[in-house]
């Protein structure tokens, strides 16, 4: 029972912490570019404002348009709740292994892309087409990276993976280094950050995610935006806890839980800063360079898998 309560609390932390991470990245980016910038808690204000605004739905919209924000949000919350953030071994993490997690995100994206096509404007279709193209290239790279880890730890359960790394003495696996690089590239692509997509853009011809949600307003838009922030958070937690699991609580003592919370906060802030630095230094790619970028991610993960088979299997 204690485990379930903790799991709920952890899911709540992830859901309500996600806007802060997005705000933090934006704030660091502004500082790097010598701008004043909104404070890191600005996304909370934005979401609250959107929740209180009126919803306008296009005449040509079907019910898909209205349920898509709810599906996207709830499926991303579910994805977040199975990721061990503060503590590992919680009962929710057995619901889904990492392949199911990828499936959750894919389901959310499926409805997001449908919502983009629903109203029948050109931008929505453009965004959906680009989104599914990028996703279909990112998914194999992502799973390849995950398989590489799974081969070492003999598990695809996230709790199992993190638990294995915590209980075994530290060892620098070459396969992990490759997989970490590959997965980081995938995470940037999947969360729609520069150089793949620009979350701040409103130039119609270059945008992907923003083009799909162009027709949304009010609380629907808030759920969509919050879903995107959650996705960034999920990838952040996943990357930091898979490759740097130290600090994650393995029991439910208050002290270890506090350490776990501090550790994940620190890791996410560092990761967010790194993302902001990368985003400030890079320019957005044109769409047809993206396959090369994702091919690089796939090759890195493949190299990781090969180095596991060649070097690490005893």
């Amino acid at each position: 029972m204690k485990g379930w309560i903790l799991a709920f609390v952890q899911a709540g932390l992830l859901v309500f912490g996600a806007p802060f991470l997005a705000g933090w990245v934006k704030w660091v980016k502004c500082k790097l570019q010598s701008r004043q910038g909104p404070p890191p808690w600005q996304p909370y204000r934005d979401l609250l404002r959107l929740f209180n605004k009126e919803v306008v739905v296009a005449e040509s919209a079907s019910p898909i348009f209205r349920i898509a924000p709810y599906i996207l949000f709830s499926i991303t919350v579910l994805a977040g709740s199975v990721v061990p953030m503060v503590a590992t071994g919680l009962p929710t993490s057995a619901i889904a292994d990492v392949i199911v997690l990828v499936g959750f995100l894919a389901l959310g994206r499926f409805f997001l892309a449908l919502a983009g096509m629903d109203v029948g404007t050109a931008f929505g279709g453009m965004g959906s087409s680009r989104e599914v193209t990028i996703a279909s290239l990112a998914e194999p790279a992502m799973l390849m990276g995950v398989f590489t880890l799974a081969m070492t730890v003999h598990s695809t359960n996230l709790a199992g993976m993190i638990g294995y790394l915590l209980t075994h003495p530290f060892q620098l696996y070459p396969s992990f280094v490759f997989a970490a690089m590959g997965l980081m590239l995938v995470a940037v692509a999947e969360t729609g950050r520069i150089p793949i997509d620009n979350p701040a853009t409103h130039l119609e011809l270059t945008m992907v995610h923003e083009a799909m949600i162009l027709e949304y307003s009010g609380r629907h838009l808030a759920l969509m935006e919050w879903g995107a922030m959650l996705k960034l958070m999920v990838y952040g937690v996943l990357l930091s806890n898979l490759f740097c699991p130290w600090g994650v609580a393995v029991d439910y003592a208050p002290w270890t839980l506090l350490i776990g919370l501090a550790a994940i906060t620190g890791k996410l802030l560092v990761l967010g800063t790194a993302l902001a630095v990368a985003e400030s230094g890079l320019a957005k790619m044109r769409l047809f360079r993206v396959p090369q970028y994702l091919a690089l991610a796939f090759i890195l993960c493949l190299l990781g898998m090969l180095s596991h088979v060649i070097l690490e299997v005893s």
Binding site: R109, A135, S136, E139, L143, F298, L302
Partner: peptide, 13 residues
């Protein structure tokens, strides 16, 4: 397995 992942994602597309 990666081919299978690509297949699944393309089917979704």
């Amino acid at each position: 397995a990666a081919v299978l992942a690509l297949t699944g994602a393309l089917a979704a597309a």
